[in-house]
């Protein structure tokens, strides 16, 4: 029986970005509803699938199990609940061994936490907001259906998934060596102390490295995309260094955060190959991955390297189109005969 993993991050969509920018709020009611939609979507295929869902303390998993279509074999992953990002990572590590496809509901941060543990398992990343780079804002039912056609091998996963890149970071500062991994972006802000989870002032952004770039994205990927787009599965990435737009040779108009269009002074833009490091010498700063503040640094040498071995992201539209093209979604005899 094909097996699907489901991760719903209960705390996604509530952090301070709701205050600093135009990010939208996604409450648990909406998350529960979307989760049930995913389960309904899984019934698009004839084959019965089994589902395991990450447990949580907010009742999302309980609700999903209660409301799941009767033909699904659904249960919770047996694991302790810490109510931190560790839960997502633990569930993803479990699914790496057991699942044929995984659906994640959350933002960039949740997708990254899951992706870094999933290995080769195809990932359907559903944005529960409207302001993410990696997850796509797609209806839960459609996402579930896409996961189902892949997990049940109705379509070949190879043809409808893309390999996303990663960015490995190594920082050496007065306190030793620190490591961090990002999926789409690593950003550097020079607000030295205050551990901002959100970019409040664009002049505080010093630069960073992206593994993908498009002007229709938001944040550092948007800035890079304004110069040269990089497809999510294209090799390598780009390193960006910013400065005062009054002094830098070039500047870029980009969407830095929901509700924030701004001019960024571009000191340099450097295309990177896979495994080609960009080195930053930094004073007091904070580096963050995929929009989340992670590490405070003082007098640091930071190396950021795009690498190839990221998650396999499912192209939702492509997966269902492939299923359709194969005729897998139509039946050519009366339903009564089929049963």
């Amino acid at each position: 029986m094909a097996h699907i993993g489901l991760i719903v991050n209960p705390s996604a969509g509530r952090d301070i970005r709701r205050l600093t920018g135009g990010a939208s709020v996604v409450d648990n009611y909406a998350k529960r509803s979307t989760t049930v939609c995913v389960l309904d979507g899984l019934t698009l295929v004839d084959e019965t699938v089994s589902v395991e869902i990450m447990p949580d303390k907010t009742g999302i998993a309980e609700h999903a199990i209660g409301e799941a279509p009767s033909e699904l074999d659904i249960s919770k992953v047996e694991m302790p609940i810490k109510e931190t990002a560790a839960d997502t990572r633990r569930a993803a590590a479990h699914f790496r061994e057991t699942a044929d496809a995984v659906v994640v509901l959350g933002g960039d941060g949740t997708s990254r936490d899951a992706a870094l543990e999933l290995g080769d398992v195809p990932l359907v990343s559903v944005s529960t907001g409207t302001n993410n780079v990696v997850p796509t804002p797609v209806d839960g039912t459609v996402a579930g259906a896409a996961a189902a056609v892949i997990a049940t091998a109705v379509v070949d996963a190879e043809t409808v998934t893309t390999r996303h890149g990663k960015i490995e970071v190594r920082a050496d500062d007065v306190n030793g060596e620190k490591h961090l991994t990002g999926l789409a972006t690593i950003g550097i802000t020079d607000r030295p102390f205050v551990g901002t989870r959100a970019l409040v002032d664009p002049t505080e952004l010093l630069g960073g490295v992206v593994s993908r770039a498009h002007p229709a994205a938001i944040g550092l990927t948007s800035v890079a995309g304004c110069i040269e787009p990089i497809a999510p599965d294209a090799p390598g990435g780009a390193a960006l260094r910013f400065g005062d737009p009054d002094e830098t040779p070039r500047s870029v108009r980009a969407i830095l955060a929901p509700g924030m269009t701004t001019t960024i002074g571009l000191e340099s833009h450097e295309s990177l190959d896979w495994d080609e490091p960009a080195v930053f010498e930094l004073q007091d700063c904070v580096i963050g991955a995929d929009g989340e503040r992670e590490v405070e640094l003082a007098d640091a040498t930071v190396t950021m390297t795009p690498t190839a071995n990221g998650p396999r992201l499912v192209d939702v539209d492509g997966a269902l189109q492939a299923a359709s093209e194969k005729g897998a979604l139509i039946s050519d005899r009366p339903l009564a005969d089929a049963e």
């Binding site: 509530r14 952090d15 301070i16 709701r18 205050l19 102390f193 205050v194 551990g195 989870r197 409040v200």
Partner: peptide, 13 residues
């Protein structure tokens, strides 16, 4: 918004 009340900077911001 919900912030980590054990992190003074999160509350401050």
């Amino acid at each position: 918004v919900t912030v980590d009340g054990m992190d003074i900077t999160a509350v401050y911001e």
